[in-house]
Amino acid sequence: MNWPKLRTFLLTVLVLCLIPATRYYQIDVPLLRFLRGSHHVDPLSLHLSGEFVENNLGTEQEPDGSVIVRMIAQQYLFIPHCVLVPAGVAVHLRITSADAVHSLTFNGTDYAVKVLPGTISEAQLQFPRPGEYKMPCREFCGAGHYAMRSELKVVPRDQFPALRPEERGNCAAQ
């Protein structure tokens, strides 16, 4: 048995295992996306068909009271610009990018959602108290990045308008 050679080999294997182990936070989200599949959207034709057409953006009310929020991140805006959700219910966020990498964060909370072109980023959020949160972009996305900021309005559940199934809520409609 050639012990020095075996030792080198084992050490190499250990190092190779350590690289993904220390970088797992970078690989796990794309890996999960890949495993789940069917999250692909064409960033160039979001406006033509599918889930992210203009009239489908905003807050959709589910029969059980929870809401789905659909958004597009595009240089240098989040659309819709002001999102309205009821307090204390499950908020299912679905967001995709039309161009660069963005990151949707909610000031005053720990939530941060990475937004990549070509895939739908999903997040389960909940806002217990009514209030207003600024939603800045935290991933440098270009010349107008520093002004890329939209707003989330959390209103008490009884103040949230009852939406028809095809209707989407936002602050402007309130």
């Binding site: 010349a143 107008g144 520093y146 002004a147 890329m148 939209s150």
Partner: peptide, 15 residues
Amino acid sequence: SFGDGERGIPPCQAC
């Protein structure tokens, strides 16, 4: 040149 970050208005010259 700067837009208005408070209101979330990006600068015109960025596009």
